[in-house]
């Protein structure tokens, strides 16, 4: 005889089913929608993939490959549309999955640099992962702080306020400094044979804060 299942058991199973489906959809490692296909990185990737496919005996042109990639990135847009109605609930409970699992490796890690400027003299006081310049390294490596400069795009107000906090601390610790410069550098994950991570380094953001005058 089949045991009868209570209404609460059925409701719980239904709710968990919905929750797991939604989170499963959010966590799917779907590719980002392809927006720029002419950047140097995209062209290099396209050329690598075309060569690999050539080696495997599959002949494709660049345009065909771009069309395939665009087609495979479409589900990312469908996912966004599907999940939009649930956004307020996810915001309120803070359970919205913000990233797909292992979808995109970091090819261009960022390094933060802080300089104390005293007149003409500029001294590097902090550089991420550099033991020789480790002023307040524990603070900068805190995962909450790291998130602010690791993932931010553009000169957002959050980043400006973060730079203000860095400058306040630096002015306190370096009483002779009259300016503090905070620079975010985009490096490239090096080839295993390459030692210098600063090859192709690019300054993403560079802000200088002047010491406020004391009354």
């Amino acid at each position: 005889m089949t045991p009868s299942r209570s209404a609460s058991a059925k409701t719980r199973a239904l709710m968990l089913g919905v929750v797991l489906c939604v989170h499963g959809l959010m966590a799917l490692p779907l590719p980002r929608p392809v927006m720029r296909q002419n950047s140097p990185d995209s062209l290099r990737e396209l050329s690598n993939w075309r060569n690999r496919l050539d080696d495997a005996g599959v002949r494709v042109t660049n345009d065909q490959l771009v069309a395939w990639v665009r087609m495979w990135s479409q589900p990312t847009l469908w996912r966004r549309d599907l999940l939009t109605p649930l956004r307020p609930l996810h915001d309120f409970m803070g359970v919205g999955q913000g990233w797909g699992f292992f979808a995109v490796p970091v090819t261009h890690p960022r390094r933060l640099e802080v300089y104390a400027i005293d007149g003409e003299q500029e001294v590097l006081i902090y550089r991420r992962l550099d033991p020789a310049h480790d002023w307040r390294a524990a603070w900068f490596s805190d995962r909450h702080v790291r998130g602010v400069y690791d993932s931010i795009r553009g000169r957002k107000p959050t980043y400006r306020r973060f730079v203000g906090s860095v400058a306040d601390m630096a002015f306190k610790d370096f009483p002779d400094a009259d300016k503090v410069r905070v620079q975010l550098v985009r490096t490239q994950t090096p080839d295993p044979r390459q030692e210098d991570v600063y090859t192709d380094a690019k300054v993403l953001m560079d802000m200088t804060v002047t010491r406020p005058e004391t009354p």
């Binding site: 915001d91 309120f92 409970m93 803070g94 359970v95 919205g96 913000g98 909450h144 998130g147 993932s151």
Partner: peptide
């Protein structure tokens, strides 16, 4: 804890990492 952490995530989204969300669950 879950609700306050969610609010902190809304206040400074960049400071909210994957582990914070995993702990809210």
């Amino acid at each position: 804890l879950a609700l306050c952490s969610a609010q902190a995530a809304l206040l400074v989204p960049y400071a909210d990492r994957g582990i914070d969300m995993l702990l809210r669950n």
